[in-house]
Design a protein around this nucleic acid. Structure first.
Lengths: 219, 219
DNA sequence: AGGAGTTTGTGAACGCGAGAACAAAACGAG
DNA sequence: CTCGTTTTGTTCTCGCGTTCACAAACTCCT
């Protein structure tokens, strides 16, 4: 999109690698909590559930943070990956749609521990506006613009029914949100420059069902 | 794995295509509900958010279900995809771990409408055993073997804390479950022949954060 | 019946990602 | 200091997935 500056960290990390870095980060955290100070690529690969050659190649995109003949310093590598992903900084997040899933997301401890701070819970249904979920009170959806503006929110989470998803996305984009995590079972259209990631619970089950059916057929 | 019989539907559909079929299925359902009887690959591709050439190639793995110069019959194609995925049949599912996320999953309407029937909710915490969620009562985790055996359950969902995930997976595999959907933020090891799919809410956010950080740097 | 206009299905080219294999570098023993 | 051992970082090859482009096939109009 933008012309990349020549001197600075201009390496563009492959998408497939970016998707695995958080897995490595979690594996390193687990190792660190277990008291491990140093680990080989083989160890870390096992903890992350990947091939060790792939792990080393992935890490090589970030730089040379290992020591040949020794391995990787767990804490050092952990910091480097966290910095590369961006989870060393604070990311304010708004969640729209406080149904069952919205509740679960608001209460999910894995967000806060990785730098994501839920600054607002929004819902269009006035019946929910007196609720307090995970220490944050639910507010009207129309407060979106004000909250996003005041707190410089860049990331929005959609946990509404499918029918509302596109409207919510449009409003989010209009007030400056540039990354959207969409849990609604609907395809949403956004302009260039806005990233959307989609998580669909039933799609994952359907993929399993396909393979399950194949197993049954070949038996 | 198994030697494939020569005459019968021996086509093996690429993994990437399998992952998109549920998306097409949902797009077709939306079109059908809107009254559309026939659609071109261009229409369907737009509704599904993919390239039309990719859509046509994906569908070609299933067979020739379109008519040149005309397009696809929505209901017919919908049935063919549903049959190929396996969602025309009934899939009993057990959910283990009835915390916030387990509640959300148990109440998720998108499962039942696609042939997935939640036959049991299990939790190790006795304090939850008097609860009834989405019309199903929560039972002790130790009932797993009996329920899976009685109802021929092939698919299990793990929504426990990370620390419990591997144990739950082991027990599931031991009593005959061959497909696992894992929401716990942990890598689980299973023997060959068992499929695992992983959904990690915080990983998706971290991927967004990475790209968000890049946008900020290049500005 | 024939031709113009559409739209599917697929062959071919291309680019990315996975994995094997190896060279470079660090450490330790003697 | 030198050699053997260990482990990283990287090169190379292969296969999969995506996309383009076009021939085949169907409809409709005259």
């Amino acid at each position: 999109m933008t012309a990349r500056s020549s001197s600075e960290t201009a390496r563009d990390i492959p998408e497939a690698t970016v998707a695995r870095l958080p897995v490595y980060l979690r594996a390193l955290t687990t190792l660190a909590e277990g008291g491990t100070r140093t680990c080989s690529s083989e160890d870390l690969a096992a903890a992350a559930g990947v091939n060790s050659a792939k792990l080393r190649k992935d890490l090589s995109y970030l730089g040379s943070y290992g020591t040949r003949g020794v391995g990787y310093d767990v804490d050092y590598l952990r910091y480097q990956i966290a910095r590369e992903i961006g989870v060393t900084q604070d990311w304010p997040v708004v969640i729209v749609g406080i149904g069952n899933l919205g509740h679960a997301l608001a209460n999910y401890s894995g967000f806060r521990s990785r730098g994501f701070r839920v600054v607002a819970l929004l819902d269009a249904d006035p019946a929910r506006h007196d609720e307090v979920v995970a220490g944050v009170d639910v507010r009207p959806f129309d407060d979106l613009e004000q909250i996003v503006g005041d707190q410089s929110v860049a990331i929005g989470v959609i946990a509404t029914p499918a029918i509302a998803a596109q409207d919510v996305a449009d409003r989010m984009v209009a007030c400056g949100i540039t990354s959207i995590l969409n849990f609604a079972p609907a395809v949403i259209a956004v302009p260039d420059g806005v990233d959307v990631r989609k998580v669909d619970l039933s799609i994952e089950l359907q993929i399993l069902a396909y393979h399950e059916q194949r197993k049954a057929q070949s038996a």
